[in-house]
Nucleic acid binder design. Structure first.
Length: 277
DNA sequence: TACCAGGTAAAAA
DNA sequence: TTTTTACATGGT
């Protein structure tokens, strides 16, 4: 038993909901009430515990990854205080109290995962992604390490097509792996420059760049207005269900400033859980 | 069977 | 410059 404290509020069940919602994810595997992820070649088990999570095995490097993974960078106190004065969110946010949007700790994994999710349903995306991880990732215990850029740089388009990628997406992934982006440098750039650099890469559009800011860099103002699920969630919560264009949703970013990222995650999770109940 | 699903690049107009 | 089209799997 090794306790890793998580800033309160924190609801483990809600914060890991995404890892169960669309099918098993071999790189972030829900197994026997715990989340399994390979860190530094070893499988780490993350389970609910009073005041935080039980992490096994736990060392400093693992703690850094788990803190990132569980969204500890987000300032929930400030968000909740702000949301209390907002329509819609004043009711929704308390229902999801302690929800910390999970952050993808690895930049390459984030981008490849987004490519798999472009255009198709997340159920289809998860199925294809799982086969890719099984084919190219390293197993450690029950879970798999997400395939490295070095490994996928050596893959062929045909190998990715064989696990369900379209030819176009296979080219994107292999091209990205071979592009050798400097992710540490990218992480130090402001939002708009990150977007400009990412969208210069073939296969990475604005939607993918926005989710990179949101899900990997945890930038407070990231707002993936092009996301179909977010558009539907915004429409449901703010427009009585009538369709909203990408431009309309993008123009709503100002009213959520500077909490666009948390707002997007709460609306999406709210649409899947609270609204569905 | 058809159609939609948490887009993108390239062709066509 | 703006508008179409191809892409390809999984669920309903």
């Amino acid at each position: 038993m090794a306790l890793l404290e998580i800033p309160q509020p924190f609801d483990f069940e809600l914060s890991t909901e995404r890892f169960r919602a669309f099918g098993p994810d071999p790189a972030n595997l829900w197994h026997e009430d715990a989340l399994l992820r390979v860190v530094g070649g070893r499988e780490v088990r993350i389970a609910d515990a009073p005041g935080g999570v039980d992490v096994e095995p736990l060392d400093d490097a693992t703690a850094q990854v788990v803190l990132k993974l569980l969204g500890t960078e987000f300032d929930l106190d400030a968000f909740e205080a702000w949301a209390a004065g907002q329509p819609v969110l004043d009711e929704l946010v308390p229902k999801l109290r302690g929800f910390r949007p999970p952050i993808a700790p690895d930049p390459f994994e984030t981008l490849v995962t987004s490519i798999t999710a472009q255009q198709v349903s997340l159920f289809a995306a998860f199925a294809i992604r799982s086969r890719m991880i099984h084919a190219f990732g390293e197993r450690a215990g029950e879970a798999f390490a997400f395939p490295t850029a070095d490994r996928l740089a050596q893959a062929t388009d045909e190998e990715l097509v064989a696990v369900g990628f379209s030819r176009r997406k296979a080219e994107y992934v292999v091209g990205l792996a071979r592009a050798g982006l400097d992710y540490e440098r990218l992480a130090r750039l402001p939002d708009d420059e990150v977007k400009a650099e990412l969208t210069a890469v073939r296969g990475l559009g604005e939607w993918t760049a926005d989710w990179y800011l949101a899900r990997h860099l945890a930038r407070p103002r990231a707002w993936p207005a092009g996301d179909l699920a977010l558009r539907k969630a915004v429409a449901a919560f703010y427009a009585g269900g009538s369709d909203l264009s990408i431009a309309e949703v993008r123009d709503m970013a100002d009213r959520f400033d500077p909490f666009q990222n948390l707002t997007a995650h709460y609306l999406l999770t709210g649409a899947r859980t609270v609204a569905a109940a």
